[in-house]
Design a protein around this nucleic acid. Structure first.
Length: 492
RNA sequence: GGUCGCGUGGCCGAGUGGCUAGGCACAGCUCUGCAAAAGCUGCUACUGCGGUUCGAAUCCGCACGCGACCUCCA
């Protein structure tokens, strides 16, 4: 495979529903925008999946030579709770419950979000803009939309005029919606009497009494509409038209559809060239979501302290589990699947350690270049991480066979393999070492004493004693393995 | 109700026309004091019914089941 084809990336574009060759507007630069969290509650594992998908995209784009500006926002303004509750903002509502300052809530959950990102080894974005820091830009955008005739003000709120926009532009293309079908299926909800059409959406909302977060605007005190911040912040940092916009499937409609409409209405430009949507993490076949109440937090996941969890799982096990599935497919969480991933990851890691200790031979039992090409091909095919991982497992068999003396690899092949595994596992998939428990020097010394006693017992064929040492250690979670290089131990 | 998508072996999960991934689990063998690890071997699936085709998990139709979106949601 040539260097050129190594960066021939294909991505499924939601707009066309097809895999398309990814060609950035201004190579080698790539602009990537991902919808970030709304910081009014803890992130759950489903959120983590989505961010992990785009983390791998960011890593891969970088790896194949692009210079990526990765923007992921923090939504700290809050969205409307619902139409009945019109005027109340999620963050404000929570603040009242907890008697905290809204920005305190924002800070708390932003910190929590960052902790989770670190835990799962997600890279920091290049820019992490907040909605509250871009109010002026949002107000300006509302003004442009009004000036172009696609929004109207009613009683201190400004609404986007969807039917008017749809008359001359396409609306619903991304999510496959048709305007008359949308009309026909409108729900009768209260509190929408200000809108000319039920399809219209607020781009600026008047702050009702008691609403805590509000700012002055040409239309009075209020706050920006649900979809505006992403339009503003993406184009501010990446340009009026940028390369990739990512987010979860559930944001396709209305969120992303509205983003397109807003940008076109304000600036006459389609904002995004490639739209990418990650699929949902499910639990017992149902979407993990705040509203379903079936989400667990990363902390619960680690401790296993949740009714859906048989026990805890490490962050890297979870990350690996997610990457064994293609991002566009739903992934069902189960203890059985987690345990399968845990063992698989262990095997892969062990093979990487083995790889570092292989003795080179004369023959070459593997076409390492073809192996490497296959890894690139999988990733370039719409980030097919499960195929790439399958390749790595194929390599494991070779590595272990060489270690068992049943096959050979040349020194050059071993070196190359080390690089490929390190690149794919660490740089691309973002699998890092787990923090080991009880690995301090005293423990190491004590284990050395115990293992020496056991070795002596074995040498004397006193297997009762040697097995008692092993079984007692096993009971406290320490596993003993006799290998030809000596006895090793690990703590689960 | 509307729109979109999915249904693969015990489990998870790739795969868009023929060469039938991968992981986990299970069984046998090798190695081993016994374990563990590793290797080898086996188990070989595509919801159902029609159709297109020399040939379909893969394309088309219908049925059944499931999900997502249509309202804040990754």
């Amino acid at each position: 495979m040539s260097a050129a084809s190594r960066n021939a990336l294909f991505l499924t574009n939601t707009l066309s529903r097809k895999k398309e060759a990814f060609i950035p507007q201004n190579p080698p630069h790539v602009g990537l925008y991902v919808c970030g969290p709304t910081v009014y509650s803890d992130v759950h594992l489903g959120n983590v999946r989505s961010f992990t998908t785009f983390d791998v995209l960011y890593r891969w784009l970088t790896h194949i030579g692009y210079s990526v500006r990765y923007v992921r926002n923090i939504t700290d303004v809050g969205h409307l709770v619902d139409d009945v509750d019109a005027g109340e903002d999620k963050i404000a509502k929570r603040a009242r419950l907890e008697r905290l300052e809204p920005m305190e809530i924002v800070q708390k959950y932003t910190n929590g979000f960052h902790d989770v990102m670190r835990l799962f080894n997600l890279k920091n974005p290049s820019i992490e803009p907040t909605a509250t820091a871009h109010l002026i830009e949002q107000i300006k955008m509302v003004e442009r939309i009004i000036a172009n005739g696609y929004a109207y003000e009613v009683n201190g709120s400004v609404y986007f005029d969807v039917p008017k926009f749809a008359a001359t532009h396409s609306y619903g293309e991304l999510s496959g919606r048709k305007i008359d079908e949308l009309m026909a299926n409108t729900r009768d909800t209260e509190g929408q009497e200000e809108k000319r059409s039920p399809l219209d959406f607020a781009i600026w909302k008047k702050a009702e009494a008691g609403h805590l977060m509000h700012w002055p605007s040409p239309w009075g005190e209020g706050f920006p509409g649900w979809h505006l911040e992403c339009s503003v912040m993406s184009t501010k940092y990446l340009g009026q038209t940028f390369d990739i916009h990512g987010g979860g499937m559930d944001l396709k409609f209305p969120h992303h559809e509205c983003e397109i409409a807003q940008s076109v209405a304000a600036d006459g430009v389609n904002p995004v060239r490639y739209w990418m949507h990650g699929n949902m993490l499910t639990v017992n076949g149902r979407k993990m979501a705040k509203s379903e109440g079936n989400g667990f937090t990363p902390e619960e996941l680690l401790t296993g302290n949740h009714k859906l969890l048989e026990r805890g799982y490490s962050p890297m096990t979870v990350r690996f589990f997610m990457l064994q599935c293609h991002y566009a497919s739903t992934l069902d969480f189960s203890n059985e699947a987690m345990q399968a991933s845990e063992k698989g990851l262990e095997k892969l890691r062990a093979a990487m350690v083995t790889l570092g200790k292989l003795k080179p031979g004369a023959a070459d039992g593997m076409d390492v270049a073809a192996f490497e090409d296959a890894c690139y091909a999988a990733m370039n095919d719409d980030l097919n991480t499960p195929i790439m991982i399958a390749q790595l497992f194929d390599g494991v068999r070779v590595i272990n066979s060489v270690n068992d003396g049943k096959a050979e690899l040349t020194a050059a092949s071993i070196e190359r393999l080390k690089q490929v595994y390190s690149t794919m596992m660490v740089d691309v998939l973002g699998i890092r070492e787990e923090e080991k428990k009880g690995d301090d020097s005293l423990t190491t010394d004590l284990m050395g004493v115990l293992l020496k006693m056991r070795a002596d017992a074995k040498a004397n064929k006193d297997f009762a004693t040697s097995d008692r040492i092993r079984d007692t250690l096993a009971a406290i979670g320490v596993t003993i393995k006799d290998t030809k290089e000596g006895t090793i131990w690990e703590h689960a």
